[in-house]
Nucleic acid binder design. Structure first.
Length: 441
RNA sequence: GGCGCGUUCGUCUAGUGGUUAGGACACAGCCCUCUCAAGGCUGGUGCACGGGUUCGACUCCCGUACGCGCUGCCA
């Protein structure tokens, strides 16, 4: 559609992918995909990091997990590489020379500074609108350093050179860079180049209004990977932070977002990250998973959290997980939810015991046991019919026998459908667990 | 301190001069129901404040407050 559109995500190798960075990457990616342009990944390791590969691994992993594939960058190459700043020093030297020749640079105790033209700089931001920065006062806007005495480069300079060299058409980045933009424009102009278009997107804040920092739980994409979130849900949620389809939709497929996304729907005010809403949205996506997707994800989570499922036939595990589908929002909740399928040695919920394992209920549970033992076919519909008939015979509501039974066979007050869970467990195990429960009355 | 940006329910947001200020999450209640979810219904809470402009301001202008960002030889 428009190959001239080139955007980039330019993280520094910190060892993790920040959720705010992921959102910035996402908006860049959406913009590129919407316009049929290119999404470039560039690592800003201004040569102070040796182990770039290790430190960038989490960034690559996070982006891939979110599905934000880059058209140019590390691993995939491209016509404007290399894509690691530490490999681009020759370029910076060349541009520095040019600036020096034109008298824009002066030395200050060994460091090199860019001499500001001392003018007003207008930033026409695609999100923030037109902003007039007055840079005429050296006292408030000192000349920026672009290279340290040890020869290493400062962000402002290399960032501009790379955007220029890589033919970046739109710089979409966090609002924390808004005040830096006029300085960047000054360098572009000193080089005789036209600056790219800018779009500064609002920051993501914590509950308490502070900037989300790496120390905050949930500030890293890694956290959501580990906790069993679905990438599609996280992406969708991130889109809703600072961007709106303006038609009250919340759950929107990424393809649809690509179709309708544009910078003019991006808001200007900061957004607070709301884990509850993400949790809800993840549940929406989890409920739509196919049976086999749910099974694969469920098995992975059970294994990684130490639930021993290897001793059970695949069909048993499959049936067990099937009873959990639609019930959980994140896979993190799964082990606690269905662990009873995979061990006979579970504790009973104390509140449940107090409420349901009492002398009044004991004969009721006994009746259930007898009714079950008489069953030839131990499937959900038979079990349901039996429980209902038993309740009728005893003159109680079915709930009154369901609760003690559930507690007896799962140890919990909540869980999958009792009828279906009993079918999966099987008659033998169900009877044994009921028998075991009697000693707790 | 200076400069910049922002401010609609607790949170994410719709809204661009006249709306009963809409939706979603969360919360509460009810329905459904074998529990929990899901689903359905109902409810409460919001335009930061003060001046203007206007017949009329959440919407426009100015100021104040508060928040955030930049102000590095961090990115």
């Amino acid at each position: 559609m428009n190959p001239e559109i080139r955007v980039r995500f330019a993280p520094s190798p910190t060892g993790y992918l920040h959720i705010g960075g992921a959102r910035t990457a996402l908006f860049n990616w959406l913009f590129a995909r919407h316009h049929g342009g290119k999404f470039v990944l560039r690592i800003e390791d201004t040569d102070k990091t040796r182990q770039v590969e290790e430190a960038t691994a989490a960034i690559y992993e996070g982006l891939r997990w979110l599905g934000l594939n880059w058209d140019e960058g590390p691993h995939v190459g491209g016509d404007f590489g290399p894509y690691l700043q530490s490999d681009r020093t020759h370029l910076y030297e060349r541009y520095l020379k040019k600036l020096q020749d034109d008298g824009h640079i002066f030395e200050d105790q060994g460091a090199l500074r860019f001499r500001s033209p001392r003018e007003h700089v207008i930033v026409d931001d695609l999100v923030c609108g037109r902003i007039d920065f007055d840079l005429t006062n050296p006292g408030t806007h000192p000349d920026m350093t672009i290279r340290r005495p040890d020869g290493s480069w400062i962000f402002h300079f290399v960032n501009v050179i790379d955007d220029l060299e890589m033919k970046i058409s739109h710089v979409i980045r966090g609002e924390d860079h808004l005040s830096n933009t006029p300085k960047h424009i000054e360098i572009f102009r000193a080089l005789g180049a036209r600056p790219p278009c800018y779009a500064h997107i609002p920051l993501i804040l914590n509950k308490d209004g502070s900037k989300m920092s790496k120390r905050d739980e949930g500030a890293r994409v890694e956290y959501y990977i580990k906790r069993g979130y679905l990438p599609a849900a996280v992406c969708n949620y991130l889109c809703l932070l600072g961007w709106s389809p303006k038609d009250n939709r919340e759950k929107i497929d990424i393809d649809e977002i690509i179709r309708i996304f544009d910078l003019n729907q991006v808001g200007r005010s900061h957004a607070t990250f709301d884990p509850d809403k993400l949790h809800w949205l993840n549940g929406e996506y989890a409920r739509e998973l196919s049976d086999s997707e749910f099974y694969d994800l469920g098995v992975a989570k059970l294994k990684s959290s130490g639930v021993k499922i290897d001793n059970y036939p695949e069909e048993y595990v499959r049936a067990a997980l099937q009873t959990c589908k639609g019930k959980i929002n994140t896979f993190d909740e799964l082990p606690a939810y269905c662990g009873f399928y995979f061990t006979d040695d579970f504790d009973y919920n104390p509140e449940g015991v107090a409420k349901h394992f009492n002398t009044e209920n004991k004969p009721l549970l006994k009746a259930v046991r007898d009714a079950f033992s008489a069953l030839q076919k131990f499937d959900a519909s038979e079990i349901e019919a039996t429980l209902k008939a038993t309740a009728t015979n005893l003159g109680v509501r079915v709930g009154q026998i369901v609760h003690p039974t559930r507690l007896a066979v799962t140890g919990s007050n909540v869980g999958p459908s009792l009828y279906h869970l009993l079918e999966v467990l099987g008659k033998e195990k169900a009877l044994a667990r009921i028998d075991r429960a009697f000693s707790n009355f």
